[in-house]
């Protein structure tokens, strides 16, 4: 399988505090990698490094297989602009996902309408972004992340601000996208039970890499058991069991 992204010996310090220590892992084409870990484990810092939002770090990351920054879609935790009166329609927000200035206006309009129909937000296109609910907003930002047809979609705890009923629906939507269009997924989360049932690989982070490998082998990791204790490991193993259950 081709690598899309490779992180090599990446370390980040905030002053004297070490946020990430010697992190190495990779994301393959058609991968679904869940990055999990407790609060303060460095998940968001790692994501910001990969996305170019943190520029001061040791180590490196490499985009493989002709992956460009423009090929990465990014879905934030919640609405990035909290100004409810910000004068922008849903259509205008989705449009910001398109960086190709040469794109034909008609083709762009068609793409926005089709994608918004697929995500169930077609009727919201002319609404002001600040008037939407949390679930509607996340669909809009998902549309913004997908409109340029990314090869890799990075999501930072995308359902943390959503109600539980919408969470399952949201992950089904992502799974469908992954399966049908082959978009590689990196999902950052600390919600083991509901999120990792869809992931193929797991990176458990606690400033260092505690575990990196397939979800199915997670129970065999003594390092993980030692680091997070039997209770949390059991939660991860339930994920494994769930995976088996789905495949059976």
């Amino acid at each position: 399988m081709n690598k899309l992204l490779e992180v090599r010996n990446l370390s980040v310090n905030f002053g004297r505090v070490k946020a990430l220590d010697d992190i190495s892992f990779h994301v393959e084409a058609n991968d679904y990698l869940a990055i999990v870990g407790p609060n303060g484990s460095g998940k968001s810092s790692l994501m910001k490094c990969i996305l170019g939002l943190i520029e001061s770090f040791q180590g490196s990351y490499v985009y493989w297989d002709d992956l460009q920054r423009e090929d990465i879609g990014y879905l934030p935790q919640r609405s990035p602009n909290q100004d409810k009166h910000f004068p922008a329609t849903v259509y205008e927000i989705i449009q910001t996902g398109i960086t190709n200035k040469k794109i034909d206006r008609k083709a762009m309009h068609k793409a926005i309408v089709e994608l918004s129909r697929k995500l169930g937000i077609e009727e919201l296109l002319n609404q002001k972004i600040g008037t939407l609910s949390g679930g509607q907003s996340q669909r809009v930002f998902l549309a913004r992340a997908l409109i340029h047809k990314p090869k890799l979609l990075i999501m930072d705890e995308p359902t943390s601000a959503l109600d539980p009923t919408f969470r399952d629906e949201f992950y089904q939507l992502i799974k469908q996208l992954h399966d049908e269009e082959g978009v590689a997924i990196v999902l950052i989360s600390h919600d083991l039970s509901s999120v990792n049932q869809y992931a193929k690989n797991l990176l458990y982070l606690d400033q260092k890499v505690v575990y990196f490998g397939s979800v199915q082998n997670v129970c065999m990791s003594e390092a993980l058991m030692h680091q997070i204790g039997p209770q949390a490991t059991a939660a991860l193993c339930q994920v494994e069991n769930h995976e088996h259950h789905i495949h059976l």
Binding site: G52, L53, R69, Y74, P76, Q95, T96, I98, T99
Partner: peptide, 19 residues
């Protein structure tokens, strides 16, 4: 225009999208 608008709404996303 599109770049300035993207940056005004969400500076992080504007950076992530290579602007």
């Amino acid at each position: 225009y599109q770049d300035l608008f993207a940056m005004t709404y969400d500076l992080d996303y504007a950076k992530v999208s290579g602007r």
